[in-house]
Simulated scan of single mutants.
Amino acid sequence: MTFPTAQQTDSVASEPRARRPWFRNPLLGLVLPLGIAALWELAVYLGFSDGRLVPPPSVIAVTLWELAKTGELWRHAQATILRVVAGFGLGVAAGTLFGAIAGYSALTRTVIDPTLQALRAIPSIAWVPLFILWLGIFEASKVTLIAVGVFFPVYLGVMGAILSVDRKIVEVGRAFRLSGPALVRRILLPAVMPAYVVSLRSGLGLGWMFVVAAEFMGASEGLGYLLIDGQQLGKPAQIVAAIIVFAILGKTTDWLLTAGTAPFLRWEDRFHARQEA
């Protein structure tokens, strides 16, 4: 009986990477939105719709170009991005801290979790008048509202991840006489990281949703302001253009978050990770 050499083993192991299926191409994600845009453009061109309330992509592209040419697009996008970044940072910090404490301590979880679950059910728009009363109509109230939206998915994700850690792997760590910090670093953190990343992505998505409500608080700049301005002045192309920019920025930041956390998940031996390799 002959056994494969190391070189043969390496070539076999690398074979799936060379034969990566065509449908794994990330650019395929553009097929659906571009296809819908092309169909709508064609429908307006053929006269099936006048394109007044829902403008065709050509009109939206012109609107985006005009906003970019005057510098308004970047000014409004920058204001929104800064608010989301600040609110996301605060929400993640608070959600991670409270989630870790509640997941680790049964007493703390019993005391604070019912209240937080009740607060989680409050609609985002209901916080607006209260934050305006407390913090005014400037940036503090807007960032706080975004942080509230980010807080709850991160809190639930961290607490749930800690509670779902397999007891057996903790016992293995104790059997190897790991100290408390070493147990957290080598056992608990890797175990909760996948769920934590998912909760971060959920929180980021809600952050982009809450920023619209935040910019309804008398904002003079931001993509939410473009939405209000377009609605008041009857500019549907501007409204759709702002929505498209929201979608692009949301997807871009989600990709950056996923790429930034990927090195912390390299230890995972997942079936889908092997398929995508």
Score class of each variant (00 low, 15 high):
Ile81Pro: 00
Pro16Lys: 01
Val198Tyr: 03
Pro114Phe: 06
Phe152Arg: 05
Gln7Val: 14
Ala161Phe: 09
Leu39Val: 14
Leu204Tyr: 05
Ile162Ala: 03
Val54Asp: 02
Ala38Arg: 10
Phe152Thr: 03
Val84Glu: 03
Arg186Asp: 13
Ala262Gly: 04
Trp267Phe: 15
Ile36Phe: 15
Pro236Ser: 08
Ile146Trp: 01
Phe216Lys: 00
Phe151Cys: 10
Ala182Cys: 06
Leu32Cys: 08
Ala191Trp: 08
Asp269Met: 13
Gly205Thr: 12
Phe246Ala: 01
Trp74His: 05
Thr115Trp: 14
Leu46Glu: 14
Arg20Asp: 01
Gly173Lys: 05
Leu67Asn: 10
Leu30His: 07
Val197Leu: 12
Pro21His: 03
Gly180Tyr: 09
Thr252His: 04
Ala191Val: 08
Leu73Met: 11
Leu97Ser: 11
Leu178Pro: 02
Ala182Thr: 15
Arg167Lys: 15
His272Glu: 14
Leu135Cys: 05
Gly149Asp: 01
Phe152Trp: 12
Trp22Leu: 15
Leu116Arg: 08
Arg20Ala: 11
Ala175Pro: 03
Gly160Asn: 15
Glu221Cys: 00
Ile187Thr: 14
Leu46Arg: 15
Arg167Cys: 06
Trp40Cys: 09
Val154Asp: 06
Pro26Asp: 08
Val59Leu: 10
Leu189Val: 15
Lys235Phe: 09
Val154Gly: 09
Ile239Pro: 05
His76Tyr: 06
Arg186Ile: 06
Leu204Arg: 07
Ala214Glu: 00
Ser199Arg: 01
Ala6Cys: 01
Phe246Gly: 00
Leu32Pro: 00
Leu73Val: 08
Gly157Tyr: 09
Ala175Arg: 10
Phe271Gly: 07
Ser164Glu: 13
Thr2Ala: 14
Thr70Trp: 06
Leu64Asn: 09
Arg83Trp: 00
Gly203Gln: 06
Thr9Trp: 04
Val240Asn: 00
Val245Ala: 04
Pro21Tyr: 03
Leu227Gly: 08
Arg83Gln: 13
Ala175Phe: 12
Ala100Cys: 07
Gly234Lys: 07
Ala94Arg: 04
Ala79Cys: 05
Ala93Glu: 02
Val212Cys: 01
Arg167Leu: 13
Ile125Asn: 00
Leu133His: 01
Val211Pro: 00
Glu139Asp: 13
Pro56Leu: 04
Gly203Leu: 07
Phe138Thr: 11
Ala219Gly: 04
Leu64Ala: 10
Gly71His: 07
Pro26Glu: 02
Trp134Gly: 03
Pro57Gly: 10
Phe176His: 13
Thr96Asn: 10
Pro16Glu: 02
Pro263Ser: 11
Leu183Ile: 09
Lys69Phe: 03
Leu82Cys: 03
His272Leu: 13
Asp10Ser: 13
Ile239Trp: 09
Glu268Pro: 09
